[in-house]
Design a protein around this nucleic acid. Structure first.
Lengths: 371, 371
DNA sequence: TTGAAAGCGCTAACAT
DNA sequence: ATGTTAGCGCTTTCAA
């Protein structure tokens, strides 16, 4: 067994040498070396002396099979190491127990949490989530969606309400339940589960104004990529506007370590606009960066300057101070969406076209003073 | 379209009301309302007046088709919104362009990075990753593996070298390339790509000893769950032992916010063993928690006490001080594994049974003084 | 360049 | 309780 050592960055090969290691005893009595053709039902049928159909029944716990034959079959299947071919099964039965879950990114923490809500909820059913990632790109969303739909899943859970025309058409044509998650500000194709980000922005603006802050800076991701951040921003500024307040300064970033970006942007913004008394960040990571920076500067938080982020990232528990934030109900969203798909999958039809709007909770942490 | 509002935690329903909203113009001229039966090749064939076989050829860019028929077919397919049925295609062609990727968790950051390496590398091929999550549980790994193999993927990338006998048997029987990733300390089923965690632990121990630290505490996850953390720990303690040094204190945790845990454990350990001059953490998140805590206490770092973690999490750039760490070559591992699968998938056979060991790099950050 | 026939491995729907 | 038959929607192979 050759072993090849190389430096991490993958370029200079340090050494290639052969292991003369003792081959472990992996010839587990029954197992053939490395089969060409995977086993079929027929192999199990022959090995057990039971008809293919009955073997199939045993392996799916379907229909009545006598205890004796059942055991004969199970023994044979286990002994051979038979793994059923779901492709053939799905084609024959016209049912695929997969739920396509389409999200923008796995790096964001938010989405893995939605996912875990989904998996948890699906655990009890025979459905299984399959994840596709779009990198926030509509073209990639289209591609991923097409790819996943071509496996004829039993349902789709997809992030956001904004999709290309082609994507909408595919979703509509698919003839399966579609739940759009995370956002409720818009018209769902079928069903939506999420929070209103406009409302979230509004609520935060109200809390900030009520607490008496008035010179407010905003930092966030470059918008076109992220509709939900945009909607929060819109809700936020509109509410400020109603109170006669305008965003005093703003800055947008993309890429890089969010913590470091939050630091840099906060530094830059306060250098530019030293009179700000509140900083609203479009996510908790950059908010935490800002918070750490300001603490080092010895800023009086939340007295002379307040901070708030968005998401309620558990990751950040343990920072010296808790950032004010608003949770996005990530797990609940996942659970609810999964429950809807599962219900529709058994009921047949049930409620279609509903919108479930969850209400995010504001937590003031240590960086947003009371009204 | 009913809208249902409820509080995030999902219990008390606040309001259910009906939207009388204007239905958006989603009857996009050609699209039928909501079809029962998904479209088939035959539908496209009839709509275009071209035989099924030729339609199939056009849609796969296979074989020679005249420009005129090609366009007729493409137009029809697009107009109808045809999405090919990969289930049937896979069954007929006996090829599935999926690579099963089996990892312990999505919450860990490490694994999404491996995944992104995989996706990136597979982008150029016609292969697609499909992810399964085991929650670090061998039984779940077995289940997930069985489930994924039943879709007859073209290859498997799976984290770790430790698997149940049944899992090993399935992998062996599957007759497809299998790459075990993250770890090279053990005997791969087929091919392994990763780092030696024992060696990583050893290197860190050497660096710490060379820098003159000698009263060393260890904090980490409960071991049985995580073989790689265990191996690092073993390498670490063995190297210390050779120098006549023993771990002075240690503590293990599971669950909760890693940052907060790092804080708590560090506090507790230093209360217990105030004379420690170095703390080795099994991951960067708890290390960062400890670092934040010690800074608040005004500790002299790395003078009177040093710290180190493991992983090189980019997430943490932006902390007031950089934690000493050792990167795990996550992305490179993903890329290399994917490249091997892709190569084997085209070549037919090529190199089997190799082990690629990448070398992690130590970065001293601001918490491990020079030798 | 195009078409017709024969399955891929399984399961639904009937026998028995 | 068990077996038989006929596909599922494609692609492979061979013929035209």
């Amino acid at each position: 067994m050759p072993v090849c050592r190389r430096r991490c960055k993958g370029l200079d090969i340090r050494a290639v040498r052969r292991y003369s290691s003792i081959k472990p005893q992996r010839q587990d009595s029954i197992l053939q070396p490395r089969p060409k053709r995977p086993l079929t039902l027929r192999d199990v049928s022959e090995a057990s002396g039971v008809s293919e159909m009955t073997v199939s029944r045993v392996l799916r716990n379907k229909g009545d099979v006598s205890a004796t034959t059942r055991e004969k079959v199970q023994a044979a299947a286990r002994r051979l190491g038979y793994v059923p071919n779901k492709i053939a099964g799905a084609l024959a039965s016209q049912r695929v127990n997969l739920v396509a879950v389409i999200i923008p990114s796995l790096g964001n923490m938010v989405f893995p949490e939605v996912l875990s809500g989904i998996s948890e909820e699906l655990e009890g059913t025979d459905l299984q989530p399959v994840v596709g990632v779009t990198d926030y790109k509509p073209e990639k969303e289209e591609k991923v969606l097409f790819e996943m739909l071509s496996w004829r899943p039993s349902g789709v859970i997809i992030a956001g309400l904004e999709h290309s025309e082609a994507s909408r058409a595919m979703l509509l044509q698919a003839g399966i339940p579609v739940v759009e998650v995370m956002d409720t500000d818009g018209d769902p194709i079928d069903t939506a589960v999420g929070i209103s980000h406009r409302r979230a922005g509004r609520l935060m603006a109200e809390a900030i104004l009520d607490a008496g802050y008035s010179r407010i800076g905003f930092m966030g991701t470059k918008m076109p990529l992220d509709h939900r951040a945009r909607k929060r921003f819109e809700g936020f500024t509109q509410t400020l506007a109603k109170a006669g307040v305008e965003i005093a300064d703003q800055e947008f970033y993309s890429g890089g370590s969010a913590l470091a970006k939050g630091r840099e942007m906060t530094h830059a913004m306060l250098a530019r606009s030293p009179d700000l008394d509140f900083l609203y960040y479009s996510n908790d990571m950059i908010g935490a960066g800002g918070l750490l920076y300001l603490q080092e500067q010895g800023a009086d938080i939340p007295g002379s300057i307040g901070l708030a982020g968005f998401n309620g990232v558990e990751l950040l528990d343990g920072l010296p101070r808790k950032l004010a934030t608003m949770d996005a109900c990530r797990k609940e969203i996942g659970q609810t969406a999964a429950r809807i798909i599962a219900a529709r999958n058994s009921d047949g039809a049930s409620e279609e076209g509903q919108t479930v709007e969850l209400s995010p909770t504001l937590s003031r942490g240590d960086t947003l003073r009371d009204a």
